[in-house]
C-alpha cells in the first residue's frame, strides 16, 4: 500500500508537470498580447511593455523562469488586475465555487439515490418510467438552460429566491440546484441499473433464503453493493460540476473561479491562465486519486499490491 501511494504521488507530480508545460507552450500560440488596450498601443509602446514583463525573451527562457518561480510557490501577478497576485485572485474565489459545487454534488447524490432506489424497487412501474424519462432529460439538457429557467421562474416570477448576486446562503441555492441536475440524473440512472443487477445476484437469493426480511435484504445487501460503483462516478461528476460552474457562475453572478478562468483566457492574462490551470489540474488529479483509494477500501477485489507488482 505504501509503495503504491508513493508511486501514485510520483505519477501525479509528473502529470501535473506535463500539463503545466503543455499549457505554457500552447498559450504562446494564442494571438494577441496580455496588455490591456491592444487597440491603441503603438509598436514602440508594445516593445517597452514586453521588455518590462520579460516577454521579449525567447519562450524557452520564459518557461524556465516560470517553472523556477512556480517551484518556489510564486504564481506571479495578473496583467489585467494591476498589482494583484494570482494567488490572491484564486484563493478569494475558491470559496464560492467550492460551495456551490459541493452543495450541488450533495443535492444531486441524495436526490439521485432516492429516485434510483425507488425506481429499481418499483421496476417497470409508472414511477420508474417517469424517473427514467426525467433522468434522460436531465442528462441531455445543459445545466445553463435549467439555470436560465430557474432564474426566471423561481427568481423573477415567484420571487422565492434571489435572482442572482452573492448575498447570503439563499443566493447559493439556485446555482446549486441548476448544477445538481446532471448529477441527479446520472446517479439515478446508475443506481437503478446497478440495483437491478444486484437484485438478481446469488447472494441476494441466499439472503432471502436465510429468511432475512425484505427490508434487511434491500438495505444490507442490495443498496450497499449497488453503491460501490457509484463512488467511481463521483470523480467524473466532480469534474463535470467544475466545468459546469464556468457558465452557471456567470449567469448567477457568483464570484467564483470558473468565471475568472474563461475571462482570463479571453483577455490573455498569461499568469492567471497558468495559475488556474494548475489549480484545476491538481484538483482533478487529486479527486481521481482519492476516488481510487476509496474504491479500494470499498471493494475487496481490488488489490493495491497487485497493481504495483
Amino acid at each position: 500500500m505504501k509503495r503504491y501511494l508513493i508511486q501514485r504521488i510520483g505519477y501525479m507530480i509528473i502529470t501535473l508537470f506535463i500539463i503545466v508545460t503543455a499549457t505554457f507552450f500552447l498559450m504562446q500560440l494564442l494571438p494577441g498580447t496580455p496588455f490591456t488596450n491592444p487597440e491603441k498601443l503603438t509598436a514602440g509602446q508594445m516593445a517597452v511593455l514586453n521588455a518590462k514583463y520579460g516577454l521579449d525573451q525567447p519562450v524557452g527562457i520564459q518557461y524556465l523562469r516560470y517553472i523556477g518561480n512556480l517551484v518556489q510557490g510564486d504564481l506571479g501577478y495578473s496583467f489585467q488586475h494591476e498589482g494583484r497576485t494570482v494567488e490572491s485572485m484564486i484563493s478569494s474565489r475558491i470559496g464560492p465555487s467550492a460551495f456551490i459545487g459541493l452543495q450541488a454534488l450533495i443535492i444531486g447524490a441524495i436526490v439521485g439515490m432516492v429516485l434510483g432506489i425507488i425506481s429499481a424497487l418499483k421496476h417497470n412501474s409508472l414511477f420508474d418510467y417517469g424517473s427514467v424519462a426525467l433522468a434522460v432529460l436531465g442528462m441531455s439538457i445543459p445545466s445553463f438552460v435549467f439555470a436560465a429557467l430557474l432564474q426566471y421562474y423561481v427568481g423573477v416570477k415567484l420571487g422565492w429566491l434571489p435572482v442572482a448576486l452573492w448575498e447570503g446562503y439563499s443566493s447559493t441555492l439556485l446555482p446549486s440546484i441548476a448544477l445538481s441536475v446532471t448529477v441527479t440524473a446520472t446517479v439515478a440512472r446508475f443506481i437503478r441499473s446497478e440495483m437491478l443487477e444486484v437484485i438478481g445476484q446469488d447472494y441476494v437469493i441466499t439472503a432471502r433464503a436465510k429468511g432475512m426480511t425484505e427490508k434487511q435484504v434491500v438495505v444490507k445487501h442490495v443498496i450497499r453493493n449497488a453503491l460501490i460503483p457509484v463512488v467511481t462516478m463521483l470523480g467524473p461528476l466532480a469534474v463535470s460540476i467544475m466545468t459546469g460552474t464556468l457558465v452557471i457562475e456567470k449567469i448567477f453572478s457568483v464570484p467564483g473561479l470558473g468565471e475568472q478562468f474563461t475571462l482570463s483566457i479571453l483577455v490573455l492574462d498569461y499568469s492567471v491562465i497558468m495559475g488556474i490551470t494548475i489549480f484545476y489540474s491538481a484538483l482533478f488529479i487529486f479527486v481521481v486519486f482519492v476516488v481510487d483509494i476509496i474504491y479500494g477500501f470499498l471493494d475487496p477485489r481490488i488489490n493495491f499490491r497487485g497493481e504495483s507488482a
Binding site: P96, L102, E167, Y169, P255
Partner: peptide, 8 residues
C-alpha cells in the same frame, strides 16, 4: 467553506 464565501 461557507465561512470562506465572502458574501456581500
Amino acid at each position: 467553506i461557507l465561512s470562506g464565501c465572502n458574501f456581500n
